[in-house]
Nucleic acid binder design. Structure first.
Length: 468
DNA sequence: TCTGGGGTCCTTAGTCCA
DNA sequence: TCTGTGGACTAAGGACCC
């Protein structure tokens, strides 16, 4: 999906169409979860601190995320995909791999299927997506990137929507790309590769596997060597079991008080246990994550003798781990995770006398929360500090726009007809309007780009022949 | 200037045990 | 009985993804 969260928000509030929209981030410690292409023109990117995003584009509309809603939209989109083939592997809320080899005889060749999928999602959800067609998963993912809209200094440019990497043409497509395009090459790996003189995927392919494994470790070295040579035989896996379940939260200000931290650990642990029960899973290992004010992050874990889905057991383990950590310097983030997951049926019955009563109480509280919301009931230790999954400490963290801001007229940003309509070909060919560079953007933007004059909007060849 | 949340996978190191 | 080895498990941290 293209700029998924932002696109969903724009669909909910059509008056935002064509405006820079930023989703995510809470308070002064938030980051951007998604930005509309109009916002990206100003240099706003995912994972950027929200304070910086605000400086880059003060007149953007900033919205808090609504994960539950995105999840519902995602389910409906995945259902569209499942109509094409049962072999769908969701990668996240807004991405999935499809193995369409069995569907092509009935429904047509893969590129045609891709176009059908885009049309159905656009019709049913009024959302755009991009599709990559290729003979392997990682190649399809790279092809998808090629098909997506992109941002030029002059404004958003609609992508081709579908990009096909034909059989036999894989290496021609792959080798000119930067090594960082490969799934698994982030900043750290890129630095190590640069020391080997590797910048492109082609450079990577020409390295002996042994030097890559020496530089990156056995698994990563071998994996990247294979990918760079176009080899990826990983199948589409339909039902991937979760490996871990966790909750973590950054506080609006560092916490020092033991009581407050214990209450947070209780709340997070209880939420994790609830999700375990909802998934009929039990966990053997409980992990506590602590990030201090200076961003130093530690994890402490314990493996229990028996798998559990009990809130009491998870919270107890988390609080024991917390008690062994010196939190005096101040805690910025606390997290509780559960791993070593197994079906709850496999859980061994405890001989502890009162466990049944506790289990029954947790089941009742689960039903209450299903019906009345997560803040309806909770462990006393967490309820005293506040209720629900989200900490009350962070009521001031949310920085979604007041309704008044949304109602405000929008004088600065030129809303293109292309944006309003979703970008038909003729409309896209119109010149992009004068660029609004606010003083705030000028002073806040580190990009030299921002200081450049706003050029006429170029229409790429891909766009001219595009299929939007 | 300041760095979310929810995940997955890998590496390294230590311990236990056959 | 002692020593070496390798696998399984555990713990902690790092890198990466969306």
């Amino acid at each position: 999906m293209d700029a998924f969260y932002a696109a969903v928000e724009v669909r909910r509030r059509p008056e935002l169409r064509g405006r820079p929209v930023v989703v995510g981030g809470t308070g002064n410690r938030g980051v951007v979860a998604a930005a509309s292409y109009e916002a990206r023109v100003f240099g706003i990117r995912s994972a950027m601190p929200s304070t910086r995003a605000r400086r880059l584009c003060p007149h953007a509309v900033f919205l808090p995320g609504d994960h539950a809603h995105y999840g519902e939209v995602s389910k409906r989109v995945m259902a569209v995909l499942a109509d094409v083939t049962p072999l769908v592997e969701p990668l996240s809320l807004d991405e999935a791999f499809l193995d369409v080899r069995g569907a092509t005889r009935l429904l047509g060749p893969a590129p045609a299927l891709a176009a059908q999928i885009r049309a159905r999602i656009l019709e049913q959800e009024q959302l755009t997506c991009s599709v990559g067609v290729a003979s392997s998963k990682f190649m399809a993912k790279l092809a998808t990137e090629r098909a997506k809209p992109r941002v030029e200094p002059s404004g958003p440019v609609w992508g081709t929507g579908v990009h096909v990497v034909a059989a036999g043409a894989e290496l021609d497509f792959l080798h000119p790309l930067p090594a960082t395009a490969l799934f698994g090459v982030g900043p750290a790996t890129a630095r190590r590769l640069a020391r080997l003189g590797v910048e492109t995927v082609g450079d990577l392919a020409s390295q002996p596997e042994s030097s890559l494994t020496a530089a990156l470790g056995a698994a990563a070295g071998r994996h990247l060597h294979r990918l760079a040579n176009g080899i990826d035989d990983r199948p589409v896996v339909v039902d991937r079991a979760p490996r871990s379940i966790s909750h973590e939260e950054t506080f609006s200000r560092d916490l020092h008080a033991e009581a407050a931290l214990e209450a947070e650990a209780t709340r997070l642990g209880d939420a994790v246990a609830r999700r375990l029960r909802a998934s009929s899973l039990a966990a053997r290992t409980i992990t506590l994550k602590v990030r201090f004010g200076d961003f130093k992050t530690i994890t402490r874990s314990v493996t229990l003798p028996e798998a559990t889905d009990s809130g009491r057991a998870v919270v107890s383990a988390a609080r024991d781990l917390l008690a062994a950590v010196d939190t005096a310097p101040g805690v910025r983030l606390l997290g509780v995770g559960a791993s070593g997951l197994a079906p709850a049926e496999a859980e061994q019955l405890s001989l502890e006398d009162d466990s049944e009563a506790h289990d029954a109480a947790e089941q009742v509280s689960d039903r209450i929360r299903d019906r009345f919301g997560s803040s309806a009931i909770g462990p006393a230790a967490a309820v005293r500090a506040g209720r629900g999954l989200r900490s009350p400490l962070d009521a001031d963290q949310r920085w979604g726009p007041p309704e008044a801001e949304l109602a405000r007229p929008w004088p600065e940003w030129p809303v293109s007809e292309a944006s309003r309509s979703g970008g038909s070909e003729a409309e896209l060919a119109r010149p992009w309007p004068e660029r609004p560079v606010s003083e705030a953007s000028r002073s806040g933007g580190s990009e030299a780009e921002l200081a450049r004059p706003w050029p006429e909007r170029p229409v790429s060849e891909a766009n001219k022949s595009g299929n939007d």
